[in-house]
Write a protein that binds this DNA or RNA. Structure first.
Length: 430
DNA sequence: TGTCCACAGGAAATACGGGGGT
DNA sequence: ACCCCCGTATTTCCTGTGGACA
């Protein structure tokens, strides 16, 4: 007698869900799941609404001379994340490669993606891999050796070589070495025609560069403006058409998503993510996507961003964050200083067996948390009572609680008492 | 006016572990 | 197997400092 009602229940449940299906084709809400041709189709649809028209025209005229056999100067692109630099350039370079092939012009293009920060060494290593010059090394090989291998790999190539350096300013240690190699040394050592394309999200990334490199660097600059609400509406509209049922949206939902996204970043990827999240919330409660759901989705996304970040962060950074949270919980004051938080951190280390860091390193961790907006801090002098960094935690309590949870889970696991493992930098989701 | 607190944060030194060369 | 080099994380050492208080 038991199984039948359950079967009914399940059947009802599923039917109910199907009835409320909003997402017809989920893949179009997530670029990662699209195959290349679909990505290009979406991209072309976007370009066809004239959204990145002027930028494409500029890039075309920059590279046009290649088809005549001329050698264009380098190109520097500036624009915030999610303004389509990467996609536009890759799309364009793919097209250019095709055209060159038709005309029997040798052109090789590589995409050096530095979207996660890495030191000069890693960056060069990646480049070497892209050029099939060597395998991936972790350490232990001299920079000079890497450079020689890259040069050797290109020693007999006479055509064009376009290197698209994505997010240049993510080269942390020794950006000068990296760029001076690309800009000054490489062109002189290889017979091919080198064209560099730099993309960056800081306008002034060239300012604090070795002056010798800068004077060597002849570039054409191009700025990608953040998408405005209207552009975003176009972009979202295309996704909606491909992914959702036609009547799934309330009036004004698209406009609201576009407005929210353009207000605080103008990032198309985040706008699409917000749409996707709203859709899945709507599906769960079986309604259309309405304005309230958009708000809720926005706050969910923010929460997830923090929690994901802290979960993938190095152990010591997690411990620091936990110490900060505990400090606030214990004192009820809305301000804390480095000393007190450090004491709490040390006690925490004692309890869990984590090897405590010295105060100097701890201060750097606090700064890192500040950078990623887990907290706010500023140096403050209290006269006789010394000077300290005042720490303010202004995360919504709900988010703070989730963060604490995520960290605690991590520390419940048995710990390596002599943990001295290398500290990874915080992973920033693209 | 000078003192002195309680740190900030730069620089140099050290520790560490991977990896090539032999 | 051994040595040495390298990049990176962390420590040690150090100088600097805004302003309340005497």
């Amino acid at each position: 007698m038991e199984p039948i009602p359950i079967r009914h229940k399940i059947r009802n449940e599923i039917n109910n869900m199907l009835k409320h299906t909003i997402v017809v084709n989920r893949r179009f809400l997530d670029d990662e799941q699209l195959i290349r041709s679909e990505q290009l189709a979406v991209l072309e649809a976007i370009f066809n609404t004239n959204v990145r028209d002027s930028e494409i025209r500029e890039i075309s005229s920059h590279f046009g001379p290649v088809l005549r056999g001329d050698h264009p100067v380098h190109l520097a692109l500036w624009g915030k994340t999610g303004t389509g630099k990467t996609l536009t350039v890759r799309y364009f370079l793919g097209l250019l490669a095709d055209m060159c092939q038709e005309k029997q012009i040798a052109l090789r293009q590589v995409h050096l993606d530095l979207s996660i920060p890495r030191p000069c060494f890693r960056a060069l290593n990646d480049l070497a891999c892209l050029l099939d010059a060597c395998k991936h090394y972790k350490k232990g090989i001299a920079l000079e050796e890497l450079i020689l291998r890259i040069e050797n790999a290109l020693a007999h190539y006479h055509g064009y070589l376009v290197i698209f350096v994505d997010e240049v300013d993510n080269v942390r240690t020794d950006k000068d070495t990296f760029l001076s190699f690309l800009v000054r040394r490489l062109p002189q050592r290889i017979p091919g025609k080198l064209v560099l394309v730099f993309a960056s999200n800081r306008l002034n990334w060239m300012d604090n560069l070795d002056p010798r490199t800068r004077s060597f660097l002849k570039v054409n600059e191009l700025i990608f403006k953040p998408y405005n609400a209207l552009d975003l509406q176009h972009i979202l509209g295309i996704r909606v058409k491909k992914a959702l049922r036609p009547d799934a949206l309330d009036d004004g939902v698209l406009a609201k998503i576009a407005a929210l996204s353009s207000r605080d970043h103008g990032d198309a990827r985040q706008a699409v993510a917000l749409l996707a999240r709203s859709a899945s919330l709507a599906e769960r409660i079986g309604s259309k996507i309405n304005l309230d759901l958009v708000d809720q989705a926005a706050s969910d996304l923010e929460r997830d961003r923090y929690v994901d970040m802290i979960r993938t962060a190095p152990t010591q950074l997690q411990a620091t964050m936990l110490a900060v949270i505990r400090a606030f919980r214990m004192s009820k004051s809305d301000k804390q200083d480095t000393g007190t938080v450090f004491a709490i951190y040390q006690r925490f280390c004692q309890q869990t067996g984590l090897r405590p860091l010295a105060i100097r390193a701890f201060r750097d961790l606090i700064n890192e948390l500040d950078m990623y907006t887990f907290l706010r801090s500023r140096v403050l002098s209290k006269g006789r009572h010394g000077r300290t960094r005042e720490i303010i935690l202004d995360l919504p309590p709900e988010i703070a609680r989730r963060i604490e949870e995520a960290i605690s889970v991590n520390f419940d696991l048995p710990l390596d008492r002599h943990h001295t493992g290398p500290q990874r930098k915080l992973y920033i989701p693209p």
